[in-house]
Write a protein that binds this DNA or RNA. Structure first.
Length: 591
RNA sequence: GGGGUGUUAGCUCAGUUGGUUAGAGUAUCUGCCUGUCACGCAGAGGGUCGCGAGUUCGAGUCUCGUACACCCCGCCA
């Protein structure tokens, strides 16, 4: 019976009328008394089925009994609609199926929300009734696009001589990076596996094993607080290559992302993508993942206000702070009220205020302009190359707060000023990251990327005299790919000698003993002819979210979790039986 | 760990200064209807105003606590 079934959305009129059999969900029903129209839906789309009571009263009666979301099986004749009954809003709107058989295969409760329209439903309801929301076009399309993207990526990578190889989920907990999800071991009581934050070590081992190009589309797990672009489990397009340079990897990824953009949006992305150094990104944009959909940039102004009489500037500079600013030609779009809101908002970034003034045809006025000397005003006009009309905002504090504040505010302000193009996709490579950063809280150096990242060749000799002050100067061979201000991937050339790897561990405060305990297999493997290698991982969920212009990563995941890590459909996580705990030798200490 | 917003009918939402019996659209149910396509028309049912305290003659509305969802900071690459 199902063998000859065709798909609703794929019925076309090719020549004369033909017989079809269909099975699907009742999307909508229009009962006009003597004639009943059912819009039948399956994964491909919708087709109108007609039941004429004058031809079969019995079929019409069954059709009448079929309610929203009932599953029906229909046989009928495909025919052209008359010109005046064509529905231009439906892809199959020029044909319909005249039914001569109908069977109700299963009933449905009244759905808690309408399936047939795009009306918003609350996310809570969506997550609880995920199987119903996935019947709706919006989510269904995202899931189908995700599938298409994954297939396109596989095809591309296989064509580029990559092997797809799986790596274990049950693995060892490693220091550094995010908090691990841990899994108790029954066979080794009191011991735990950790779910991978990424397949990092295993893919490097695969390089030593001689698989010179590896990839995997794989789940990764990080037990950290969630955001709209962060889930506890997420999917990476993970890859690693031997005998490779950063330029080669960048070229391969540009090819891959070009295909992704084409597959999802139909647009052609221009390659090569722009590249900037980490240092330039921090200076111009205040963050390492800048959104380049707007030209608004941060401008260093500390030197201009070196002798400022304005107390706010003076005291901040005296404490070793910096002053950066940004100028926007807002064409009157930004109101006094919005500026007040900005001032309140910057507090979340740790800023104490958000000083500003206006530039109007040669005159600096309003805001803090009365505290600024003529000389300083002239320098501001020159530094920002002001013409016409503009608003100039400043942040003054220690460097981290200034960059944090302005990197966020430049986007908000540019958007409010109409200077951010929402329809653009702006890719950007960020390169030359520092190898380490100093962790003020724990008073130690840590890897900016991860401990297996290779330093730039010429900087290896500087490792010996690294201090908190010059830690920035030692660069790594790491690169991040950014799309519209979101990091969608990152990678590096790896260390491939035991000597250098051990040295990096020791700088990170990982003792020889600990290194042996955690990574002995890697250190050992590096001794057996480890090829030069490097790789990258792309965040599949984020790429989809941005290309599909969805607000959240959850909108491109079939079964996502809430911000508190709950699955509202299955109610995970949940307790386990005492028996299970006993088997694992685990005791739960209730808070 | 911290800040913000929200929670009213199955769903989406309105609800004024604290004041009579808490509304709308949609969905559902019943009846009518042979070319609809968000079909139409007539009627009906549907509420622990998230939960718990408090203030008050009186609380959907004010206060406090709490739960959940979302956004953000910290955290996370």
């Amino acid at each position: 019976m199902f063998k000859e079934k065709t798909y609703c959305g794929e019925i076309i009129m090719d020549g004369q009328s033909k017989e079809v059999s269909l099975a699907g969900w009742v999307d909508r029903k229009r009962d006009l008394g003597g004639i009943i129209f059912i819009e039948l839906r399956d994964i491909t789309g919708i087709v109108q089925v007609v039941f004429d009571s004058s031809k079969s009263a019995e079929n019409a009666k069954i059709a009448d009994a079929a309610k929203s979301e009932y599953i029906i099986y229909v046989k009928g004749t495909v025919r052209k609609r008359s010109a005046d009954t064509i529905n231009p809003n439906l892809p199959t709107g020029d044909i319909e199926v005249e039914a001569h058989y109908i069977e109700i295969l299963n009933k449905s409760l009244v759905p808690p929300f309408p399936i047939d329209i795009r009306d918003n439903i609350s996310e809570e309801v969506s997550l609880k009734f995920r199987y119903l929301d996935m019947r709706r076009v919006t989510l269904r399309d995202a899931i189908i696009k995700r599938h298409l993207l994954m297939q396109a990526i596989r095809k591309y990578l296989v064509e580029n001589r990559f092997h797809e190889i799986e790596t274990p989920f049950l693995n060892k907990s490693t220091p550094e990076g995010a908090r691990d999800f841990i899994v108790p071991s029954r066979l080794s009581k009191g011991e735990f596996y950790a779910l991978p934050q990424s397949p990092q070590l295993f893919k490097q081992i695969l390089m030593v094993a001689g698989f010179d190009r590896y990839f995997q589309i794989v789940k990764c797990f990080r037990d950290e607080d969630l955001r709209n672009d962060r889930q506890p489990e997420f999917t990476q397009v993970d890859m690693e290559l031997s005998f490779v340079t950063p330029d080669m990897i960048i070229e391969i990824i540009e090819g891959l992302l070009k295909i992704a953009v084409k597959e999802i949006t139909g647009l052609d992305a221009a390659t090569p993508f722009k590249r900037i150094s980490y240092t330039e990104a921090m200076s111009k944009y205040g963050c390492d993942a800048p959104d380049t959909r707007t030209d608004v940039e941060l401008v260093e102004c500390s030197d201009i206000f070196r002798d400022s009489e304005f107390n706010v500037f003076k005291s901040a500079l005296a404490k070793g702070g910096i002053i950066k600013g940004l100028a926007v030609q807002d064409n009157g779009r930004i109101s006094r009220k919005m500026i007040d809101d900005y001032t309140a908002h910057v507090r979340v970034y740790g800023a104490k205020g958000f000083p500003m003034f206006k530039y109007n045809n040669g005159v600096l006025e309003g805001g803090i302009s009365k505290f600024i000397s003529e000389k300083e005003k002239n320098e501001i006009v020159q530094r920002f190359r002001l013409t016409g009309q503009a608003l100039i905002f400043f942040s003054v504090d220690d460097e981290n707060i200034v960059n944090n504040t302005l990197s966020h505010m430049r986007i908000k302000i540019a958007e409010d000023a109409g200077l951010l193009d929402r329809d653009k996709f702006c890719f950007l490579w960020v390169t030359e990251f520092p190898l380490f950063e100093y962790d003020q809280t724990n008073k130690r150096f840590q890897s900016k990327h991860h401990p297996f990242t290779a330093p730039v060749q010429g900087d290896i000799e500087k490792l010996g005299n690294m201090t908190i002050k010059n830690v920035d100067e030692i660069k790594s061979q790491a690169y991040d790919i950014v799309l519209n201000g979101t990091e969608i991937g990152g990678g590096s050339i790896r260390i491939n000698t035991t000597e250098l790897q051990s040295r990096i561990f020791s700088i990170l405060g990982i003792s020889e003993e600990e290194a042996r305990e955690k990574f002995s297999f890697l250190l050992e493997a590096l001794k057996y002819g480890a090829p030069p290698h490097g790789g990258i991982a792309l965040g599949l969920d984020r790429i989809l979210m941005i290309l599909l212009k969805r607000n959240s990563i959850r909108d491109v995941i079939a079964f996502p979790k809430t911000q508190s890590g709950q699955c509202l459909m299955s109610n995970a996580p949940s307790g386990v039986t005492d028996e299970q705990l006993k088997e694992l030798s685990i005791k739960v200490i209730t808070k």
